[in-house]
């Protein structure tokens, strides 16, 4: 199947795709976590541009993606995001890519690799978790009530949240000036999507699919990550057949911001 140019343009806009690095080289694709955007990879992605084709994208509903494409039924589970990723790689005619997924994108990449193993040569899961909430003997790090309390926090921080989200839009020189009315409607949409995405992210349970991941996988966890503690990384390593776990001494939930050198080094070692 040849590249589908019309499809690429549509999907590139939907997911705000950034395509840099060496075009003919193997591709490395970065997926961002809940509440953020592809900009979270700004200290890591450039370090691969010399010897990789580097693809970044925003999940639909996040960052600069096309908010109009947010179909609540499609994105009521991570399967919708995984389907998007497969569509994107197919449209760009990419296969055997290295997929680096932070947090929720880790599971999105795992689901996509089960759907289409041919598209992925390696997975790197950074601060990922198959289930955030404790259940029985399983330690995910959160109690069920914590998720409700996160939703409350999103509500309580409606203004701060929305301002932060709108900030990037409004200050982007390449965009036409937004009217305040448009900014307001953007804020409302953004918060509604954030609440929904928070539920989908933190209430999902993907423990059962881990044994079906057939792609060699690197699991990176930080020993001070509050969202996805090291025991979760150990659980992933135990259940994903061909996997190895590395624990960073420092990085919190954002090793790619806090500790980009070490994270980059670990990924390169894994790919070597």
């Amino acid at each position: 199947m040849g590249p589908d140019t019309a499809g690429i343009a549509d999907l590139a806009r939907r997911n705000h795709v950034t395509d840099t690095g060496r075009h003919e080289a193997p591709a490395i694709v970065f997926g961002h976590g809940f509440g953020t955007s592809q900009r979270m990879w700004r200290f890591v992605a450039p370090r691969f541009e010399e010897d990789f084709r580097v693809v970044l994208f925003d999940l639909v509903g996040s960052g600069d993606s096309d908010v109009a494409a947010y179909d609540r039924a499609r994105y009521d589970s991570l399967h919708g995001y995984a389907a998007d990723l497969v569509e994107l790689l197919d449209a760009m005619n990419l296969d055997n890519v290295v997929f680096v997924g932070h947090s929720v994108s880790g599971m999105i990449g795992a689901l996509a690799s089960i759907r289409r193993p041919d598209l992925f040569s390696r997975l790197v899961l950074v601060g990922a978790s198959p289930r955030y909430v404790n259940e029985g003997d399983y330690v995910g790090g959160l109690e069920p009530g914590d998720v409700d309390s996160l939703l409350d926090a999103i509500d309580s921080n409606f203004l701060a949240w929305a301002d932060a989200a709108a900030h990037t839009l409004i200050h982007d020189p390449e965009r036409p000036a937004l009217t305040s009315e448009l900014a307001e409607s953007f804020k409302a949409t953004d918060t509604a999507i954030a609440r929904h995405f928070a539920r989908v992210t933190y209430l999902s349970d993907h423990r059962a699919i881990l044994p079906r991941v057939s792609v060699p996988t690197l699991i990176v966890q930080s020993d001070d990550d509050a969202v996805a503690p090291v025991v979760v990384g150990e659980f992933l390593a135990k259940h994903i057949p061909e996997s190895e776990l590395v624990v960073l001494r420092e990085g919190g939930h954002y090793a790619h911001l806090v500790n980009p050198e070490e994270l980059t080094g670990r990924i390169r070692e894994f790919l070597a």
């Binding site: 509440g35 953020t36 914590d146 926090a153």
Partner: peptide
């Protein structure tokens, strides 16, 4: 809950 919010949204 607010810690989760802090980590996933405020921190970035």
């Amino acid at each position: 809950g607010t810690r989760l919010f802090f980590e996933s949204r405020l921190m970035p």
